[in-house]
Amino acid sequence: MTLVALVLVVLASPVLGGVCGAVTDRALQRTVTREQRERHATTAVVVHQTHERNRVGDAEGVGAREGRIRVVAHWTAYDGTLHTGTVAAPRRAAPAGSTFRMWTDDRGIRTSRPLDSTTAHAHAVFAGLGAATAAAALVEGIRRLVVWRLMRRRYARLDRAWAGYGPDWGRAGAGS
């Protein structure tokens, strides 16, 4: 039992992790290609600051929560159209006329920065490591469960054997 579990942990878990990492990497690289094709960097010009807070769910993502202010800005979309909207500026103070870089989709709607290949590969590596670790933990958990059941069965047999000797076992002259 332990040998089978050891072989599975040593051989099967890394293979499973490698396969999971490779599949994840291919999927993420397709996402990288799509996002880099559909998202475009542009320069936004601040018109004025607003007093509203950053909303949860803004396209700017996690970075919009800290260290950014809301501004009304103008930007030119990839297709050449001019857009105006309220967005999060990357600085705490953004006076009128200052510029900052932002990402838009093909229609000029604000979006997050596209995923880069290196980051996608790192995510795939972590997914593979996680899958290998989870597989090894699953094998070890099953092994422990089987050993626990075997020990319970062994103790039950031992209890039945002791019960068969009766209450006078071990006393001198009791006929045992």
Rank of each mutant, 00 (worst) to 15 (best):
V139N: 00
W75R: 07
D159Y: 06
G80D: 05
T118E: 07
E52T: 15
R91M: 10
L115G: 07
L6P: 00
V62N: 08
G67H: 13
A134T: 08
A124F: 09
A27R: 12
A124D: 04
R55D: 11
A77S: 00
W162N: 09
R110G: 00
W103V: 01
L8G: 11
G170V: 03
L11Y: 04
T81D: 12
R113L: 13
N54F: 05
D105C: 09
D168R: 12
P95K: 11
L11A: 13
D25Y: 11
G61I: 14
A41G: 15
T31A: 03
T118I: 10
A12N: 07
L138S: 05
G141H: 07
V125Q: 00
Q49R: 03
V46W: 00
V7H: 06
T50M: 06
A161I: 05
R171N: 01
L16F: 02
T119K: 04
P167V: 07
A172N: 08
G173S: 02
Y155H: 09
H40D: 06
R144E: 08
L138N: 02
A41Q: 12
P14R: 14
G108Q: 11
L6K: 01
D79C: 11
D25E: 14
S176R: 14
R30F: 08
A89L: 01
A59E: 14
R143K: 02
T133K: 01
A174I: 04
H83L: 06
Y165N: 12
V146R: 09
V56S: 13
H123P: 00
T81S: 15
R143Q: 00
L28C: 05
T119F: 10
T86F: 01
L158A: 15
A127F: 06
A156R: 13
V87N: 01
G173V: 03
A120D: 04
D116Y: 00
I109W: 09
G17M: 11
P14Y: 11
A120V: 03
A94M: 02
G17C: 01
R153T: 10
A135H: 09
P95T: 12
E35G: 08
V10H: 04
L150W: 07
A120P: 06
G61D: 13
R53L: 14
P114L: 15
G63Y: 01
R152N: 04
R34S: 13
L16T: 14
V23Q: 01
L6Y: 01
D116H: 07
V87I: 10
C20N: 12
R39H: 01
R157L: 00
T31M: 13
T81A: 13
V146S: 08
A172S: 05
V7Q: 05
T50L: 14
R153K: 06
R107E: 10
V139Q: 03
N54Y: 11
S13M: 03
Y155F: 13
T76K: 03
R154K: 01
A136F: 05
L129Q: 07
V87P: 10
T2P: 02
R149G: 03
L6S: 05
A161R: 07
T76V: 13
R34K: 13
D168A: 03
A73S: 13
G175A: 00
A27I: 13
H123K: 08
N54K: 12
S117Y: 00
